[in-house]
């Protein structure tokens, strides 16, 4: 226990020492991000925007899978809930989409609470299969369209763009900065959360649920909180996606979308925020690079997942806390 404490304290010290160097790196990175859309042209700006949306989705799933270790393989359901909330409330009720951004987050988070409350006690693999089930139920419901709201297989079209004062967010560059700001905000909040009592409780549950419970952590509430926050952030990403595309259909929210998101988290390293960014980059850029080998893309992708698990299961950029824990385990 004391050894662990010492390590965590050291982690803090090294942070303070590295701060100026790190600040420089982050500053340079931010500068690049700010200049990028002016140099890159609309196509790559759009690619970067979608990359940003995937970062948001990856971050949201990382709360659930990475921080708490709950296997959620149906995350596209919450993404869909956010997108459809925006789409339906905008096209049917005429509510401006900018107001629907938080509303979508709240609706998706609320559904996250309602849907996962009864199943939160399930163990790893069972939870995984149930979340797949929820994803499928939602997708089939969207296709069958029982209340005449979702437009069936064709989806909803004619979603209005967001309006901020006199600025309509419509051009690639607008979306780029919009997504950039929201991503930076999300990353900031999540980094703070990671270091808070809640973040530590989450990691404790991931490592040893029984011990966490014994130490007085309310495991159930903590897990639910992770699901609500993760679903909410995914809902916000869905809302942005809906206004960007202006048309959404159930096809965008299949099980494979959930698999991609899950892979982003695992590829980057569980519970690692930079890992999510690296993971999303790999998932976005790889297909772009393999454009000439379009047919073999998924083949390569599947093989890469296997190779990755065999040779680098901790992810491309594992979180520090995770590394320390793993290190301690092998020392014993």
């Amino acid at each position: 226990m004391t050894a662990g404490k010492g390590r965590l304290a050291m982690e803090g010290v090294s942070d303070a020492k590295e701060f100026p160097r790190r600040g420089l790196i982050y500053g340079a990175l931010l500068l690049v991000l700010l200049i990028f859309p002016f140099k890159a042209g609309p196509y790559w700006t759009d690619v970067a925007t979608f990359f940003g949306i995937y970062v948001l989705l990856g971050l949201s799933l990382n709360i659930i899978v990475g921080e708490v270790g709950l296997f959620n393989m149906g995350h596209a359901a919450f993404y869909a809930l956010g997108a459809y909330t925006t789409a339906i409330l905008n096209t049917v009720c005429g509510i401006p989409t900018i107001w629907l951004l938080p509303v979508s987050g709240i609706v998706a988070g609320g559904f996250g609470y309602i849907l996962t409350r009864p199943i939160i006690h399930l163990r790893g693999d069972y939870l995984l299969i149930v979340t797949i089930g929820l994803n499928e139920i939602l997708r089939i419901t969207l296709i069958n369209d029982p209340w005449g709201l979702t437009g069936g297989p064709n989806g909803v079209l004619g979603i209005k763009r967001m309006r901020l004062g006199s600025l309509v967010i419509s051009r690639p560059i607008h979306f780029y900065f919009f997504v950039l700001i929201i991503s930076i905000l999300a990353i900031f909040v999540l980094l703070r959360l990671q270091r808070s009592r809640i973040g530590r409780a989450w990691n404790y549950i991931r490592e040893d649920e029984v011990a966490a419970e014994a130490m007085g952590i309310d495991v159930r509430s903590m897990k639910l909180l992770a699901f609500v926050l993760g679903a909410g952030l995914a809902g916000i990403a869905g809302s942005i996606y809906a206004t960007k595309m202006m048309i959404i259909s159930p096809e965008s929210f299949t099980f494979w979308e959930s698999v991609v998101l899950f892979t982003i988290v695992i590829l980057g390293g569980m519970g690692s925020i930079p890992g999510v960014i690296v993971g999303s980059a790999v998932m976005m850029i790889l297909p772009e690079l393999l454009r000439n080998f379009m047919q073999y893309r998924m083949l390569f992708f599947g093989a890469a997942m296997v190779v990755m698990m065999v040779f680098r299961p901790q992810g491309l950029w594992p979180s520090k806390r995770w590394q320390l824990e793993m290190g301690r385990e092998t020392e014993e």
Binding site: M298, L299, G302, M305, M309, P313
Partner: peptide, 28 residues
């Protein structure tokens, strides 16, 4: 190829590996 090297590495890695195999075979 996909499971034997992961015998000792927890429960998550084989699941992801299995998904990878699934994607691979489907596209093959």
């Amino acid at each position: 190829v996909a499971y034997a090297p992961l015998r000792e590495s927890g429960r998550l890695a084989p699941v992801v590996s299995a998904l990878g195999v699934s994607i691979f075979l489907q596209n093959a």
